[in-house]
Structure formats: structure tokens, C-alpha cells
Design a protein around this nucleic acid. Structure first.
Length: 725
DNA sequence: ACGGCTGGTTTGTGG
DNA sequence: AACCAGCCGT
């Protein structure tokens, strides 16, 4: 047992946590302290030393990537495939439960998962039906609020008082819920909320899972929201074996309902909990760790950990002050180029930024130098219009009643089924209470339908029937190939001119490849029936980011947001766009969410193993306008002795602090209109109002104006075109 | 029915 | 600057 690969690589603290007797365990694991290792070894230990069966274990993660990594590492450790082990993202596990118990969950058997764009489309429809003006109430804001409700477990009929007071919102939420229920649509929030309700309200299902799972494990526990923790609790009430690993300093998902309080409250819920701390950092050089500690120490209300390392200080942190974002990207890419020339692998380098829109300039520079890279986040492969179109054909083949899919591709590529035709189809559907598919059949039989529409609809229906027939005899990738041809999609995009058309046809071809590699992935886990292959692939398109790169594509420079970088590590990290208003983001500054932004900064710094660059730009192009920027206040929180600068006299540091801390009461600087607090301004839509507050600088400068009619509004100076009266 | 044009809007982080 | 929805001309 001493030589066991499961326990011998562990330090004392890790060993204690991993081999803790079955029961509630909370592991406070600092950045780079072996958090994933603890989880992976715990599962391996449960199986090999504790005699637990893989199928009695459920492990929940936040990202597909970490789920995959954990599974791989466990299999490597145990040297055997882990069949039956439930390991996946909360969303994927939720979906699995809903597919299994769709009836008990009150869903239709063929329910489909919708992404943000589809969700927004449904919200728009709800608002249209309620005759609400999209300009007065932005649908995006409604989406945001509905998601927030679901994160907190609130249904439309059961809103807390302060929310139910907003009757308009309440109405939209209610209509949206009804719409999704009728159409069999499940959004991301629903993938968490509905399983939670299912466990809470259905005794049979609850007991089934409580008996099934002896052990519940949670990764990134600090990022669980109310209902995620509730799910985990419900699953573990019988065996009380819950193993949660997290770091309060890395809680960066408060905006989507995460409750750090779940960590603090763990003892209260599980009074017999053992708590372990992992405080030795194995990842970063001394300098980098000191910088991280210095930044995070400014936060209040921490659980308190002292991260330490026995590594040498290493290289100082390099600051770069760029003239503009092109200069910033140029600096980073040159440094990467040089580093690669000295023999480093591409994927040892990461460029991290606060918002995905920043990736573009870096991409341009990398392309210009012919350096391979991959970008994470942003538009996902399966979210692209052409891919969603192809998938919609598959969905219709599986489920003729999928109205959103029908809507999407009935006239894509254009086949003369325009508004006129669709209006009458919709009318028939509404009158008979049937799906659009069924209504299209009725429309064909209807004498009033024009011959041309009739022919077009027939043609479309024949395509779907044909795909369905093919789906029963062809393997998935061959089926996808048929779909993009028989639907006419690939010809349609090939006929279009321009770069987008080319990339669209390429994406469609890549969908065939993606289907092919998905078959391989499936066959490794469990050889399934062909019929189910398609259904599983459709689940896959709903939750997975896209086709995974091949071996050759693996070694690339990594570009991603700070949020997606969590849990990863790189030899060299470029933390870019370190400017007030961008990072910390202006919206967080206004909401007073600086501590979460600071944790994000902490996450960014602690991704670096050997070399960290912090870059900021004096000016930046925002919405096509060049804007002056102020260095991030977080830069001023770093001890001088850890830094070295190019074009950066360290003395300037103190000034950053001043600049960023001073409130902007005089806005003359960026508006050129001599605005000040308390003055009266005129707005094109809202009329005259009083300037109440001002925040931010440059492109991000906003003011709050109190209008007699419209009430208090936050307006971005750059766009609001306010005039002083 | 459809493609091209235009002007208004956009970008905060994710499954 | 890039993207989209809505409008207009064919």
C-alpha cells in the first residue's frame, strides 16, 4: 500500500484529504495546490482502496475540459476504463438525469436543449405576443433576469416579492416558461433547476439516486450556485459522503449566481464535516506567488489561506505599457515568437484577457507571423448559424414537432417558402393546436394554398423524410454528409461569395469530421445502437464547445478569457488589457463588484508558472473610436520589487493608484461638453434630467441621469449624446 | 421572394 | 469597425 501510485505522490495534506474516512469533506485548496489531483486521487482511492464501485460515484465539474481531464487521469491511475462512473459538468449530468426521467420531470420525451441565441428568440416571441416594445425593454436584459431567477431556484409563479412586483417581467417569464414547456425546450438554467426540483419533489427518483450514489464529489465548489449545492446535498443525504474541493479566492462566477457562502455554510449543512487545507503551491515561481498574494490580500471576507512555495523567486514580472492595442499585441506576439525560437512549445504560452472581444488583435498578429494558435470561448462551433442549420435538419428528422427547427430551416436554403406561406402555416398550426410540421401537411391539403407554396412545402417535407430514412441505415458521419448535401445547405453557401461563405462551407465539412470523431468517442465509452448515436450527438452539440483538435492542433499558443483560464496553467502568461474600465470591468466598478474582479486578477496571475507579463495600453479602439485608457488599479497593488518594466518607469505606479481611486466628478475631459455633477442635461429620447453620478474614464465613462419621466438611467457618454442645458 | 443596402447597435465573463 | 434587422427595389 505504501507504494500505491494512488497515495504515494501525495503530500501530507493531500494524503489526509484523499484518504479521509467516508463522510462530508471540504478541501480548501489554493491555486496550484493540487486541487484536481486531490479529486482524482480521491476517486481512485474510493474505487481501489475503499472498495467502492465506479457506478456508485458521481463527480461534478464546471467545464467539459476538466471533466474530461479528470476521467483521463483516473483511468490512467487505475489503469482501467472507468465504466459507470458519472463524471461530467453539472449541466451534462442534469441533462442525463432529465433524459432518463423525462416523464417524472414533466418533459416531453423529445425535449431539446437550446442555447442563448435560441432562448433570446423565444423571449422575443413572448414579448411580441405580449405586445411589448423591445426598445423599451431590452430582451437581453430579460434573458439575463430569467437566467438569474433559475439560478436561484425561482419559477415564474413563485417569484420572491421584490421580483414579482415587476409585473411586466413576471408576465414575460411566465409566457416564456409556458412557451418552452409547449415546445419542449430546455435552456441551460433549466438543466440545473429541473433536476433539482425532480430530486426535491419526486421521492422515487430521489431515493433511486440516493441509493445509487454512495459518493458525491464536487470540483470548483466555490462556483456552485444555490441549486447546484442543493442538488449535491439531495444526492448525498443518505450516505453523507460528499467531497467538495474549492478556493474562495477563485470565486469568479458570482454574476451567474455562484455563492461563495456555500463554502462557509458547508459545516452548517454537514456538521460532521472534516476540513482540509492545501496551501503548498507547486505551480508558480516565488515572484508570481508573492504578486498573487499581494493582490488577493486586499480583499476582505476571505476564509484565509497562506499559499507558500519552496520554489525560487524566479524572473520578475514584466510590465509593458503599450501605445495602443496593436502595439500591445505586437509586444506579446514578438515575445512569444522569440520564446518559441528558443525552443519552447507553442502551448506553453497563453494570452489572457478580460473579454473575448480582445482576442482579435492578437489573432491578427499571430496570423501575420504564422504562429499557430487556438482561441477558447467566444462563438462556439455548434452555435454558428450554418452548423445550427445543419443540426436543425437532424433535429427535425428525429422529432418532426420541433417547431424551432422547422422555423429555422424551412426556407434555408431559400426554397420560396416566404412569410406569406409561413403565415398561413402558422395560422393552421395555431387553429388546430398542432406543430408546424403537421400544419404544413394540412396546408398542402388545403385548397386555399397556392400551388407554388404547396410544391415547396412538399419538397421540404420530402427532404426531412429522406434524412430520417437515411438516419436508420447510415453511420452518423455519413448521415451528416448526406444532410448538408440533400438539404442544399452546402450548395447554398458555396454559391455565396466572400470569405464568410468559404468558412461556412468549411465549417459544414468539419461537422462531418466532428460527427466521425464523436462516433469514436462513443465507442470507447459504450457501444450504442445507431439510432441512439444521433440522439447522443444532438445532446453533444448542445453542451460541448465543438470538435476537439487533433494531435497536431494541440501545440498552439492559447488565447482565452480569464474566466476560461481557471484551472489551467502555462509556463508563460500574458495578462493583457490591464486597464481600468476593461479590467476591472466598468460594470463591475459601478456595481461595486471589485472584489470579484480582484479574484479574477488573482486567478490570472496564478495561471503562470515561470514568466508573467502584465500589459496595458494607453489608448484603445472601442466601437471604432480611439479612447485614452487608465492603467488598471490592480497594477498598483503589486509590490514594486517584483516588477520590471519595458518603457515603464516603476515610479509611475503611485500615480496609477491616484488616477484610479479618484472619483471622476469633472467629466469635461472626455465629453467636451463641460458636464458636472448636478447639472441639467438633455437626452434625445428621455428629455431633460439631472446628472446624479459619474463613473469611469475614457470609453467606459458613464453617467447616471435622473429623468422626470423615464427615471434614473445609466448612460454611456460616448453614445448618449447628452447636451448640457 | 429575395438580395442588397443602410443606419442603428454593439461587448462582460459560460454551460 | 463589424454586425444585424428592417427597408426597398427588382
Amino acid at each position: 500500500m505504501e507504494e500505491s501510485p494512488i497515495i504515494s505522490p501525495l503530500n501530507d495534506a493531500q494524503l489526509e484529504a484523499v484518504t479521509a474516512p467516508s463522510g462530508p469533506v471540504l478541501v480548501l485548496a489554493g491555486a496550484g495546490s493540487g486541487k484536481t489531483r486531490a479529486l482524482v486521487h480521491r476517486i481512485a482511492w474510493l474505487i481501489q482502496e475503499n472498495g467502492s464501485h465506479p457506478w456508485s460515484i458521481i463527480a461534478m465539474t464546471f467545464t467539459n475540459k476538466s471533466a474530461r481531464e479528470m476521467r483521463t487521469r483516473i483511468e490512467k491511475l487505475l489503469n482501467t476504463p472507468t465504466q459507470g462512473l458519472w463524471i461530467g459538468t453539472f449541466h451534462a449530468l442534469g441533462l442525463r438525469m432529465l433524459r432518463q426521467d423525462w416523464q417524472a420531470a414533466g418533459l416531453s420525451e423529445r425535449f431539446e436543449v437550446i442555447d442563448n441565441a435560441d432562448q433570446l428568440r423565444q423571449i422575443r416571441k413572448s414579448m411580441e405576443e405580449l405586445k411589448l416594445d423591445e426598445k423599451a425593454i431590452p430582451p437581453k436584459q430579460i434573458l439575463w433576469r430569467i437566467n438569474a431567477c433559475k439560478d436561484n431556484g425561482h419559477r415564474a409563479h413563485n417569484l420572491p416579492e421584490e421580483l414579482s412586483k415587476d409585473e411586466v417581467f413576471s408576465l414575460i417569464y411566465r409566457d416564456y416558461e409556458k412557451r418552452c414547456q409547449q415546445l419542449g425546450l430546455v435552456d441551460f438554467g433549466e438543466l440545473l433547476l429541473r433536476p433539482c426540483e425532480l430530486l426535491k419533489n419526486n421521492q422515487i427518483v430521489r431515493e433511486y439516486y440516493q441509493n445509487k450514489f454512495d459518493h458525491v464529489l464536487i470540483d470548483e465548489f466555490q462556483d456552485t450556485n444555490h441549486i447546484q449545492f442543493q442538488c449535491a446535498q439531495l444526492l448525498s443525504t443518505r450516505h453523507q459522503s460528499i467531497f467538495a474541493v474549492g478556493d474562495d479566492d477563485q470565486s469568479i462566477y458570482g454574476w451567474r449566481g455562484a455563492k461563495v457562502e456555500n463554502m462557509l455554510g458547508f459545516n452548517r449543512i454537514f456538521p460532521s464535516a472534516s476540513i482540509f487545507r492545501l496551501e503548498q503551491n507547486y505551480r508558480s515561481s516565488g515572484c508570481i506567488l508573492q504578486a498573487a498574494n499581494a493582490v488577493i490580500s486586499r480583499n476582505s471576507g476571505r476564509l484565509g489561506k497562506k499559499l507558500w512555495t519552496d520554489q525560487a523567486d524566479g524572473e520578475p514580472i514584466q510590465i509593458y505599457r503599450a501605445y495602443n492595442e496593436t502595439d500591445e499585441a505586437g509586444f506579446a506576439v514578438s515575445a512569444i515568437d522569440a520564446s518559441i525560437a528558443s525552443g519552447k512549445a507553442h502551448n506553453e504560452h497563453a494570452v489572457l484577457y478580460r473579454s473575448n472581444a480582445q482576442s482579435r488583435v492578437f489573432e491578427e498578429q499571430l496570423i501575420a507571423r504564422g504562429i499557430p494558435y487556438s482561441v477558447y470561448g467566444g462563438m462556439r462551433f455548434f452555435e454558428r448559424a450554418e452548423i445550427k442549420n445543419a443540426v436543425a435538419y437532424l433535429k427535425l428528422a428525429v422529432n418532426r414537432d420541433s417547431d424551432p427547427s422547422f422555423d429555422r430551416v424551412v426556407n434555408m436554403p431559400p426554397r420560396s417558402i416566404g412569410n406569406q406561406t409561413m403565415e398561413s402555416v402558422r395560422f393552421i398550426a395555431a387553429r388546430h393546436g398542432v406543430s408546424l410540421w403537421e400544419a404544413s401537411r394540412l396546408a398542402i391539403d388545403d385548397a386555399k394554398t397556392r400551388p407554388r407554396s404547396r410544391e415547396s412545402l412538399k419538397r421540404f417535407r420530402a427532404i426531412i423524410e429522406r434524412i430520417d430514412a437515411l438516419s436508420k441505415e447510415l453511420p452518423l458521419d455519413a448521415l451528416v454528409e448526406k444532410v448538408i448535401h440533400e438539404s442544399g445547405l452546402i450548395d447554398h453557401y458555396a454559391r455565396e461569395r466572400g470569405e464568410t461563405a468559404i468558412s461556412r462551407t468549411e465549417n459544414l465539412k468539419e461537422l462531418i469530421t466532428a460527427a466521425g470523431s464523436y462516433i469514436l468517442e462513443l465507442s470507447r465509452e459504450s457501444p450504442e445502437q445507431r439510432k441512439n448515436q444521433l440522439n447522443l450527438f444532438l445532446n453533444h452539440t448542445a453542451l460541448e464547445p465543438g470538435p476537439r483538435g487533433t494531435e497536431e492542433e494541440f501545440d498552439r499558443v492559447q488565447l482565452m478569457s480569464l474566466h476560461s483560464a481557471k484551472g489551467l496553467e502555462f509556463k508563460t502568461v500574458f495578462l493583457c488589457g490591464m486597464e481600468d474600465g476593461l479590467f476591472p470591468h466598468q460594470l463591475s466598478i459601478s456595481d461595486g463588484n471589485l472584489e470579484e474582479e480582484r479574484r479574477l486578477c488573482y486567478v490570472g496571475i496564478t495561471r503562470a508558472m515561470q514568466k508573467l507579463y502584465l500589459c496595458y495600453s494607453r489608448s484603445r479602439n472601442v466601437f471604432g473610436k480611439q479612447m485614452r485608457c487608465t492603467p488598471s488599479r490592480f497594477l498598483a497593488e503589486l509590490p514594486e520589487e517584483l516588477l520590471s518594466g519595458t518603457r515603464q518607469p516603476v515610479i509611475e505606479q503611485k500615480q496609477w493608484q491616484k488616477e484610479s481611486v479618484q472619483p471622476d466628478s469633472n467629466l469635461t475631459d472626455h465629453s467636451g461638453k463641460n458636464l458636472e455633477l448636478g447639472c441639467t442635461v438633455r437626452h434625445a429620447k428621455f428629455g431633460e434630467g439631472t446628472l446624479m453620478q459619474a463613473e469611469g474614464t475614457g470609453a467606459y465613462a458613464r453617467v447616471q441621469v435622473n429623468f422626470p419621466e423615464a427615471g434614473k438611467k445609466w448612460l454611456v457618454l460616448n453614445y448618449a449624446r447628452l447636451r448640457r442645458v
